[in-house]
Design a protein around this nucleic acid. Structure first.
Length: 417
DNA sequence: AGCCTTTGACCAGCG
DNA sequence: TCGCTGGTCAAAGGC
């Protein structure tokens, strides 16, 4: 399970900057998080502390939304460049995912990045509404998509010389036209070559996060495991999306000071963002912003790590497109038609919060849901309201007991399929 | 009563 | 085969 599975078809990824050799850069922890990494990287090029720069971001209400795509490193250093057919066939996700690195443009300092239009301003956290921030992020995603279409040939045959300066009108979160501009001695490059995450990224998609809590990305998560990272003092936590049919998992790593340094997603949400009680307009906006964050940061990936697509695209496309992306990129062994009405008809307490997805969210009564092959769950989870274990076991499905609790003198377990 | 976290054990892949 | 490691399980307890 922890082992490296064969990485079959080319698969786009969004990855964190792979980690450098530990001793080379830190000599303390064998696995510094990307935040630490970026911090150290910035420290060399800018007088200010990255933590200081970031501090303004972290405590801004816009931080969540802005920390998404702006913290991406779009890794296109994979074996296979996108084929033109893929780009034409509407597999935009693949196209973008194959796009070059999202990184700090040359000549732009970290503080410049933070102050740039593509980032929120730490000194005026309320200078931009969440919706504006969302719109900007979305626009950047679309720009990246457009760019990818235009430069697909460049990706196949990267230019030998990269532009030295960003164009004035380019978004601050510019697409680096050639990740090869990084010299072999560059930390990022060396990290990509040596880091253990490189191999693991075939399975998980890592994104640096600046969240105070691992569950604050808009989805509901249930922690199902925690491990001590070898050689480091900090734990790695494992979460599953607690939504009924959702197979998405995420892995959260902490820095030594307890901050989340890395959240790695696996799988794709096949449901809308859980609704958060709207207490005020601001709360609503914040919710939308975090929704956008989750949509933009989750990376679609089959359980076998065969294909993925950045859901970032979803924030910039309508639901129909998203669905098409999901279907096109699922790369999964089978699909089932999941009819919400049927689920409800079983007398189940199926969470239906994805039906009321918001005033501007389309309602889907029926969806095609790709079901990835999985060790534990191969079909949508359904809750049956019964106290009979025999009933549970005779319903034709395989059940895994995941909890038991005494209820009013008797016990009946909770089951998860 | 439902859902979550904790935590030691277990499993599987890999060298 | 064995040990290491990452990922997951599952009982127990907490909120």
């Amino acid at each position: 399970m922890a082992g490296k599975k064969p990485f079959l078809p080319p698969r786009p990824t969004i990855s964190v900057p792979p980690r450098p050799p530990a001793a080379a850069m830190f000599g303390q922890c064998a696995s510094p998080g990307p935040l630490t990494l970026v911090s150290s990287f910035f420290a060399e090029s800018d007088g200010g502390s990255f933590s200081e720069l970031l501090a303004g971001a972290m405590y801004s209400p816009l931080a969540v939304g802005a920390s998404g795509p702006s913290s991406f490193l779009w890794d296109y250093s994979h074996e296979h460049p996108p084929r033109e057919g893929e780009l034409r066939d509407g597999q935009a996700s693949l196209a973008v995912a194959k796009s070059p690195l999202f990184t700090v443009p040359p000549g732009l300092s970290p503080s410049g990045l933070l102050l740039s239009p593509g980032f929120f301003s730490p000194k005026s956290p309320f200078g931009m509404s969440h919706q504006q921030a969302l719109a900007q992020v979305t626009a950047q995603a679309q720009a990246a998509l457009a760019w990818s279409h235009e430069h697909s040939q460049l990706e196949i045959n990267p230019p030998s010389e990269a532009p030295k300066e960003p164009l004035p009108d380019e978004p601050s979160l510019m697409v680096n036209e050639d990740s090869h501009q990084l010299s072999p001695s560059d930390a990022t490059t060396s990290m990509a070559e040596s880091c253990d995450l490189t191999s693991s990224s075939h399975k998980w998609e890592a994104l640096p996060m600046v969240l105070e809590k691992p569950t604050e990305d808009g989805y509901n998560w249930r922690k199902y495991g925690q491990k001590q990272v070898k050689g480091c003092g900090y734990p790695r936590s494992y979460y599953k999306c607690s939504h009924l049919n959702c197979l998405v998992k995420k892995k959260v790593e902490h820095s030594l000071d307890g901050r989340i340094t890395e959240i790695t997603y696996r799988g794709e949400h096949q449901h809308e963002m859980p609704q958060v009680k709207k207490t005020s307009k601001d709360g609503n906006n914040l919710n939308r912003s975090t929704n956008s964050l989750a949509k933009s940061q989750v990376v679609l990936q089959g359980q076998n790590g065969r294909q993925s697509a950045p859901a970032m695209l979803r924030s910039g496309h309508d639901e129909e497109s998203s669905q098409a992306i999901a279907l096109n990129t699922s790369g999964l062994s089978n699909h089932v038609e999941l009819d919400d009405a049927k689920l409800k008809g079983d007398g189940s307490d199926v969470d239906n919060d994805d039906v009321d997805a918001g005033d501007d969210e389309p309602i889907h009564k029926q969806r095609i849901v790709p079901i990835p092959s999985s060790k534990y769950v191969t079909e949508p989870r359904i809750i049956l309201q019964t106290r009979s274990e025999v009933d549970l076991l005779d319903d034709g499905f395989k059940w895994r007991k995941y909890g038991q609790k005494v209820v009013k003198g008797s016990t009946y377990p909770r089951w998860l399929r």
